[in-house]
Design a binder for these strands. Structure first.
Ligand SMILES: [Mn+2]
Ligand SMILES: [Mn+2]
Ligand SMILES: [Mn+2]
Ligand SMILES: [Mn+2]
Lengths: 218, 218
DNA sequence: TTTTATATTTAGGCAAGACTAAAAAAATAT
DNA sequence: ATATTTTTTTAGTCTTGCCTAAATATAAAA
């Protein structure tokens, strides 16, 4: 139905729309996809003709209903495959993204229906990201960044914002994963760093770490 | 490492080399891939430069060691994924080929290692075709076409030569699958047709059917 | 052996999806 | 309000993998 390149553009635009309101700019797409703005212009003009997004020259783009549906389906596939890789093949959560980038483009409705069932229709992927249902609807949860939590409050880790292998490996070293209980013992106003407790361990984390961990307060 | 198109060419040539001895002709490749001879010439020249096959103008091609390795690995992936689809996702054996055609191109050594383990390192795919090991070596078995079996002999179905959905569905209707015991009750010399027994049922099969079923004699 | 038919290759082109360089529009600064 | 910078688009190219049409080599027939 859609090419690999088209699917990747739609997915990137979908994520950008969720990161900030309003139209998505050509340069933002180019940067997020590690490609050139001129290449982006080419592609968004094609996608506009196919009614997957609306585009006015110099004014950025916005996905249409159809474009959202296609993008959400690619993301659904990506996240379901990540669950498969972790739950069934015992991959670690920092190893699955690149493989899922390929698997998300496999075309077969039936395959995804059956994979979903096989996995027990999971709601979240290994990084805590919600899996869109077959209509593209995302389950909303009230999660907050750890950086927004006050001193002496506690939360359970429910996801990561950044999911680079480096960050995930850092979390492993600190024994933090989805479901881990975190207590904020101290918070430094001037640089946003924190002292937290995880299990029996107490340690320092930077603002950068706190801003990339999602928690649910208890 | 290799493009999707390159992998598909290598795979097709690999199969053609196994179907008949000697060099593989441009036209044979074109026909098996449903493409034009001129396109084949283009590609085999590229593959020859990459030392994946040897090519002399007008004389056909032959895979090198490296070419065989690459092709066998694609086939290994194809067949492992077919096992996954049938064993884990409960697809029927006539539904898996098209999806495996896509999955066979996913690039990750680790993925295949783990998938293989997850599936219990199967030796054969759902159609009875052998799965190459990680070095590209195919397990040899002495299977024969049902059409070569004499009257009053018996065999166990161990594979199909053709694995089109139509043929597989015909076999289902006749309750024949891998492992099914078949007795040859009669054989018509002039058209190669047979009367066979499967379970309690006795029925007629054409030469075409008998020539596409592999059995192992008891 | 010469002619005819078939197989294969070459030449030239096209679409997708990328790129660089240059032009044009929009945003910012003076 | 004008000048400068930044963003975006256009123009022109490149590579991959395909195509058609024409040329050429090989195989088959006369
Ligand atoms: Mn991912
Ligand atoms: Mn994820
Ligand atoms: Mn197959
Ligand atoms: Mn098979």
């Amino acid at each position: 139905m859609f090419t690999l390149a088209e699917e990747n553009y739609l997915k990137a635009i979908f994520h950008l729309e969720h990161d900030s309101a309003g139209e998505v700019s050509t340069n933002a797409i180019a940067e997020s996809m590690d490609t050139r703005p001129s290449s982006v212009t080419d592609m968004i003009q094609k996608l506009a003709e196919k009614k997957l997004l609306t585009y006015k020259r110099y004014k950025g783009v916005k996905l249409t209903k159809e474009g959202i549906k296609v993008a959400a389906n690619v993301i659904r596939k990506h996240r379901l495959w990540e669950v498969f890789l972790v739950e069934k093949l015992n991959f670690h959560w920092d190893e699955v993204h690149e493989i899922a980038e390929q698997l998300e483009h496999i075309q077969s409705e039936e395959l995804i229906t059956r994979l979903d069932k096989f996995l027990g229709s999971p709601d979240f992927d290994p990084h805590g990201d919600p899996i869109p249902d077959k209509h593209g609807v995302l389950k909303r949860t009230e999660k907050r960044l750890l950086s927004e939590i006050e001193k002496n409050q506690q939360g359970v880790c429910v996801g990561v914002k950044e999911s680079s292998a480096e960050f995930l490996q850092y979390l492993d070293k600190k024994k933090i994963s989805i479901g881990t209980k975190i207590s904020v013992l101290g918070k430094e106003f001037f640089d946003g760093s924190m002292i937290i407790q995880v299990g029996a361990d107490q340690f320092f984390i930077s603002k950068m770490v706190a801003e990339n961990l999602f928690v649910q307060t208890l």
